[in-house]
Simulated scan of single mutants.
Amino acid sequence: MLNNLKTKKVINACFAISMVFLCSCSASFTYNNLSWLSSFWVDDYIDLNKTQNKQLKQIINTTQAWHRSTQLPAYKQDIQNIKSLFNSTLSTEQLKKQVVFAKKHWQNLLEYAHMPLAELGASLSSEQRGELLSNIQKQIDEEREEFNEQTPLERKNDRLEEQIEYYEKWVDELTNDQKALIITANEQHKDSKSLWLEYKQNRLNVAIEIFKNKNLTQNELIAQLSTVIKERERYMSEALLKTNEENLNLYINLLYQLNTTLSDKQRQSVNDQFDELIDTLNDIIQS
């Protein structure tokens, strides 16, 4: 069970894998058509010209080829390792190490793609830059408005409902004792949404200042944009980093506790979920 959550971390670590599990189409179809699917997403933010569209598709295709050959096998191995840990005697230290390791998958993607994405950003006209920044700001404002529409209690209750639903997906049916563990962890969890919104705004503000700076050479512009794309933690507050760490420890402890309560039937359900994830990755790698 604890590894199942870890698996979610792995899946969410990469946009390609995330899309696979969010889309109703087959995993292979979705992954293999990321180029045109991504175009729909980009269109929500900015209108690219013909040359820029070609540049974007090249970035996506090159990144996808690299991702299929290097990252998907790594995800698969990661899940297999987690499954093995899940079926052996676990410690919270082992589990945390695996979770932290999984979080690096997303950073690997940024490390690979940040420079060509920055070069594309540097090619934008003043009008395109304004359009992009305005649409990102609009998205942040909408998230903030949605966040403020709920009370802290409503947000906590919604999170609990999502947590119960998620864990039941993996173990089929939770016992009352297991639900009690999840409820306790949810009560202790610190809502970091406002801090994440602050981080997003900080990062956007830096991008705005970069695009505004008329004194930058093309190379300097690309270098600074690449930093904004790649170095996410640079724009996170100490409060957010601290809260993330505290919530991570809560998460690890919950998984460890739940793992000790699983029945044979529940443990088999979790193993089935792991096998399904591995089969899905095999299908994508081989397609």
Rank of each mutant, 00 (worst) to 15 (best):
N3T: 15
N3H: 13
K8I: 09
A16G: 09
V20R: 00
F21Y: 15
L22M: 01
C23S: 13
S24V: 14
C25H: 12
C25S: 13
A27M: 00
A27L: 01
A27I: 03
A27S: 09
T30W: 02
N33L: 07
L37K: 08
S39A: 02
D44F: 12
I46R: 06
D47G: 06
D47T: 15
L48C: 05
N49F: 00
K50R: 13
N53C: 02
N53Y: 00
K57W: 00
K57C: 01
I59L: 03
I60N: 05
N61M: 11
T62C: 02
T63G: 12
H67M: 11
R68A: 13
Q71P: 06
L72G: 01
P73G: 05
K76Q: 15
D78A: 14
D78H: 13
N81Q: 10
K83A: 07
S84P: 00
L85V: 06
L90I: 14
L90N: 09
L90T: 13
T92G: 07
L95P: 04
V99A: 10
K103C: 01
H105M: 01
W106N: 12
Q107N: 03
L110E: 04
L110H: 08
E111G: 10
E111Q: 15
Y112M: 04
H114N: 09
E119M: 03
L120H: 04
L124S: 10
S126R: 14
S126C: 08
E127G: 11
G130C: 08
G130R: 14
L132Y: 04
S134V: 05
I136C: 06
I136L: 11
Q137A: 11
K138T: 11
I140L: 09
I140G: 03
E142S: 03
R144L: 02
E146Q: 13
Q150V: 04
P152G: 10
K156T: 05
N157R: 15
D158Q: 13
E161R: 15
E161Q: 15
E161G: 12
Q163T: 10
E165S: 13
Y167F: 10
V171K: 05
D172Y: 11
E173Q: 10
Q178M: 01
A180I: 03
A180S: 09
I182H: 02
T184L: 07
A185F: 00
N186Y: 02
H189T: 12
L195M: 11
Y199D: 14
Q201F: 01
L204Q: 05
L204C: 05
N205L: 02
V206S: 12
A207L: 15
I208M: 07
I208S: 02
I210V: 13
F211A: 08
N213R: 13
N213Y: 06
K214N: 06
E220I: 07
L221K: 15
K230M: 01
E231R: 09
R232I: 02
R232S: 05
R234P: 01
M236D: 00
S237G: 04
S237V: 04
S237H: 05
E238W: 00
E238H: 01
L240S: 08
N247Y: 06
L248A: 05
L250K: 14
L255K: 08
Q257K: 15
T260F: 08
T260K: 15
D264K: 10
D264C: 01
K265P: 00
K265S: 09
R267A: 11
D272K: 07
F274K: 09
D275Y: 07
E276F: 14
L281V: 11
D283H: 03
D283K: 07
S287K: 08
